[in-house]
Amino acid sequence: MNTNYDAQQPLIQVTDLIKSFGDLDALNGVSVNINEGDVVFVVGPSGSGKSTFLRCLNRLEEPTNGRILFEGVDITDPKTDIDKHRQKMGMVFQQFNLFPHMTILKNLTIGPVKLQNKSREEAEAEAMKLLERVGLADRAGAYPSQLSGGQKQRIAIVRALCMKPDVMLFDEPTSALDPEMVGEVLSVMRDLAEQRMTMVVVTHEMAFAREVANRILFMAEGKIVEENEPVAFFENPKSDRLKNFLSKVL
């Protein structure tokens, strides 16, 4: 962790973030602070820029303009070693993206072993502990293709956790799942939130957002249109856009 980082500061400070794809402006000046322990849900219509916003946070998407401070370090600065900071930002994808040529255990340990100089034994012991927590310890030797979608996504979450991140980024983690598998993934995420893991979640699961989030951001046309705590967010939407959106999804 950066020594200049003051724990009183927000964990992530986003200022005037802009991202354009050619003529298309996906993000139109997004500013938000994310504090340690926050469980921030980002919702909005498709094409509103919420996934782009999330992917800019660990620079999988290169921001066109604006600033992101993570633990006090400007990670949009080209001189910043982004690979170092990504280790502290776990990411979970819609399509799981497990490594198909490795066993589950290898999927979980390759990061800690290659990047954090852990011994294989140590990394495996930690991975097994986390696997037990999500109820998949018996699948350690399996390959990703042998798992169901819900199991794959739980493994993907564990893979990110194995790096001991300071924040977890979720990019529509349940959108590619069959309905009956959504619950098992959400329950892992709920556990994480209860353990005060800082989370940023892009999702369409409104009921889950209401239950787990402490803040909800509503995005439209590349901007944060409204932000509130969950109950007020759903009970007293202020902007017409949000009212309109909620009337469609609830």
């Binding site: 999988l60 776990g90 490594f99």
Partner: peptide
């Protein structure tokens, strides 16, 4: 190889070269 594999590798913190090599 699906680009998601590449992104998954980078998101863990692997460099471009490491992602190529391991993933």
């Amino acid at each position: 190889v699906d680009n998601g594999q590449f992104e998954a590798g980078r998101s863990i913190g692997f460099t471009y070269g490491q992602t190529m090599l391991y993933i």
